[in-house]
């Protein structure tokens, strides 16, 4: 194929996709504007049932109780993605280049603060916005910062302790669910009296797993980068 032909094709593809996407946008915008103004959702039902859920924050109640099954599966998705990444992981983690004084001192001040914030978010999740995902995310971010600042200890988590931390969240969900079934109730139906405790335990386990999985995903990407620069090192080095 000659170049002018290819250019014409590319221009056609660009034009065609722009047109198609514009049509999609028009259709969706029309659909959106036609939605009824009054809310139709389950907000009222959630509010009515909230006292029995063990969580005062409606979002937490939905995530951990009403639709706890979705959350169980989503932690499974997270763990599965990490396993998938492990099968593709090559190369060794190399120590970061000198991070510089600023990053190092910032990390040493900020990491403990982030730890406290994560703990607060986890605790507050019961009654205010917050919860396992936010706390896990912040913990993972603290870990990433420590790694970038040259601290070796996030990588020291390996072997059995690492594996247990990874599966903690999903196992906790499964154990609670199965225990309830063996007690004669539906899967993941918490007894109203212990619901708050169960949710707190589940959130703590989920936070640990989420934080460790996210951090390990980051480390895996870092490894991939290190192994790639290996192959091109001779070109890039002065």
């Amino acid at each position: 194929m000659t170049n002018p032909e290819r250019d014409t094709l590319a221009r056609l593809a660009r034009f065609g996709s722009t047109l198609a996407v514009a049509l999609v946008f028009a259709g969706l915008a029309f659909a959106m504007l036609s939605l009824p103004a009054e809310p139709t959702g389950l907000a009222a039902a959630v509010r009515a049932e909230l006292p029995g859920t063990g969580a005062a924050n409606p979002v937490t109640a939905v995530l951990l109780n009403f639709r706890g099954y979705d959350t169980l599966l989503e932690i499974a998705v997270l763990l599965l993605a990490l396993l998938a990444i492990w099968t593709m992981r090559r190369g060794q983690l190399r120590p970061q280049r000198d991070p510089g004084d600023v990053l190092e001192s910032l990390a040493s001040i900020q990491a403990p603060v982030m730890l406290v914030v994560a703990g607060y978010l986890l605790w507050a999740g019961g009654s205010a916005p917050g919860g396992a995902f936010q706390a896990g995310g912040i913990l993972a971010a603290a870990g990433v910062m420590l790694v970038l600042a040259g601290s070796g200890w996030p990588q020291r988590l390996s072997g059995w302790p690492l594996r247990v931390a990874l599966v903690l969240g999903l196992s906790a969900f499964i154990c609670v669910g199965v225990a309830v079934v063996l007690g004669g109730q539906e899967f993941l139906a918490y007894p109203a009296s212990g619901a708050a405790t169960i949710i707190l335990v589940l959130e703590i386990c989920a936070t640990v797993s989420i934080a460790v999985i996210l951090l390990d995903m980051f480390l895996s990407v870092l490894r991939g980068r290190a192994s790639r620069t290996d192959t091109t090192a001779s070109i890039d080095q002065p």
Binding site: A45, V46, R67, L188, A189
Partner: peptide, 13 residues
């Protein structure tokens, strides 16, 4: 039909 969490649709799954 099986109601996960004992709530039943549409509130639960």
């Amino acid at each position: 039909r099986y109601s996960l969490g004992g709530w039943g649709a549409p509130l639960g799954i």
